[in-house]
Design a protein around this nucleic acid. Sequence first.
DNA 1: CGGATAATTGACTGGATTCAAGGGTAGTGG
DNA 2: CCACTACCCTTGAATCCAGTCAATTATCCG
Lengths: 253, 253
Amino acid sequence: MSEPEPDFEMDLRCAQCPVRHHAICDALGASDIGELSDIMTHRTLTAGEVILHQGESSQLFAVIMSGVVKLTQILPDGREQIVGLLSAADSLGNPVSSLSNENAECVTDVKLCCFRRSQFGAVLRANPELEHRLLEQTVSDLKQARQWMTVLGKLGAQEKMARFILWLWKENRSACPHRSQGDPGSVIYFPLKREEIAGLLGMTIETVSRNISKLKSDGIIDLLDAKSIELRNVPRLQQIAQSYEDDHDQDNC
Amino acid sequence: MSEPEPDFEMDLRCAQCPVRHHAICDALGASDIGELSDIMTHRTLTAGEVILHQGESSQLFAVIMSGVVKLTQILPDGREQIVGLLSAADSLGNPVSSLSNENAECVTDVKLCCFRRSQFGAVLRANPELEHRLLEQTVSDLKQARQWMTVLGKLGAQEKMARFILWLWKENRSACPHRSQGDPGSVIYFPLKREEIAGLLGMTIETVSRNISKLKSDGIIDLLDAKSIELRNVPRLQQIAQSYEDDHDQDNC
DNA sequence: CGGATAATTGACTGGATTCAAGGGTAGTGG
DNA sequence: CCACTACCCTTGAATCCAGTCAATTATCCG
């Protein structure tokens, strides 16, 4: 139960990789990408599997090819806080130490592109552009963590829910920038249970549920099913969320 | 009021710098440090001065030589969350973009070693060891931000206070690892007002005050003055804080 | 269909905020 | 040196928001 069963598929090369140009490996050109493809292995995990344990040592460094992973911290008495959510093109694992600062657990089924820390570290040292890209991603993660600090520390339940929904919306949008029209059907799907939303926002499942219901009865959102929300009044939502218009984000993507 | 008045002193070189071997510049050896000393300027700021504004562009990147700086995020309605505290040897400013993600404001008088982003970036590109060191620091900051997320999201007022005091204690200890005996007089001084503690822990000044009083009346701490705490029962404090024994931290110094 | 897991809703409780008053302390100027 | 003021801290009382406990309904899968 502690170490997931590896599932190797050595045939798939970087050229066919769906996140080749969205993940940190984009920093390497066609001539250097071989350094990574030579040492990578693919692995498929199922929802609920634990990838990393907080405080424990691991040789894994990986890029997420598909699926969602949650980073959590667990208190001695069992309470769990979600401190990060990772999805396709994000990377996983501590790049500067073998000790993991958080637990990492699959929210959905997940496909990983895995490296041994030592081998990845060697490529990193040989390719400063790659390390620079890793720095950019870490700075971006830090920015997000600090934004969540503000949400957790200063916002009320209603405001937290609104922020969460708007955050989902933004993530959705940056993930699939296909439809160029005036975004007609603003339907968001998310794979998180109420318990996980609660774990992220620092509240209980009951409070999450109550506040979703409130937003629905106010006509601001509509619930298609428990994990699909349709936005009906975005400006109102932004107002409730105490968010500045839009974080004109020029980050990865 | 928006741009602090510079105060140049070109005479002081890196060799005399008190943080030369504790800050990121330690990554550069004696032969390369000149690249930095050639482009650095020292600046002295007084408590309350604002160094960076959230969402605004700035050409500043700096290393703190002395003093304490708080990083904050402010909501449209004025509520303020402290998302980070920086002190001697920490660096300040976004290394990958000119946009600042937070406000930075002096808590005490502060001495900075300043660089222009563009010039520092050039040194960074020429010295991968320096960029690696910056990555290490950013990862460390991210780890800390996520720990605060757990504090903000899951702990009660009493637990937050205990964590805060233990965090101060650890910071104190790593700052001056002089006295090697069994730490007899565990007195901690901190420059933060109640309002700032509240802003960091996601509570109000009144709740902060009440909980400090509670810890004092329980004999767990003693208050010498409003900003000096004496620890009287560390194990009890750790128990209240819901913290694991000690984050056997092998980080920077 | 049936059992298990997930989500909603209600009633009650409690801890933190809010509102308000009262001390303490530091810095200024007579 | 002391008085005065401004700011900071503490403490009390009342309120309120979110948590807890509990019951019901919905959904997913065998």
